[in-house]
Amino acid sequence: MTELPMTHDVLTERAPAKRSVNFITVLAALILASMALIFGLGLRHQQQTQPTEGMAPLFTLQTLDGQEIALEALRGQVVVINFWASWCGPCRDEAAELEAAWQQYKDKDVIFLGIAYTDTERNAQAYLKEFGITYPNGLDYKTKISAQYRITGVPETFIVDRQGHISEFVMTPLKRVQLSAMIERALAKGTQP
């Protein structure tokens, strides 16, 4: 039921200016489309998990002894990348196991890299000293490396084969036997093209 009385204004008016309706239509469509794009992409980005195949994301690690190690430069070796933190309980469980595995493989074309996530130098050094860890470790400057590997917590370990591809990924604390098996698998792959 339309309201009465109709005023003079309305009877003399025209239909809404086509130009402004078109403009609003385009604008509204643009806004909706860009929101859909951003949030669709954002959701997809959020749902991405750790990389388990393909080229391992490249990074340069500043170690706590002042060295600079580039992942790219380690081509030809198997690399064990372990994300840890001094405040992380399960990391402490696997620390000794990792060091033992390192001692076993250090002369066999394998290198271990430890990356400390949101840790302070003081606490990281204390942790390394406590477990007598001898392989290179560095702080994750600006949490860039952990973002590249999309870790969701610590500890997380990635095995990179000789060609620089991610061979395996484990989210739980490792035992030495398990780690050895993973390294052997990666070493075996090395001979294939």
Binding site: D9, V10, E13, P16, V21, I24
Partner: peptide, 14 residues
């Protein structure tokens, strides 16, 4: 937008 373009959502006053 469909209804608006058809001119069916017209204001009665200014």
């Amino acid at each position: 937008l469909w209804r608006w373009r058809r001119g069916e959502l017209r204001d009665e006053r200014r």
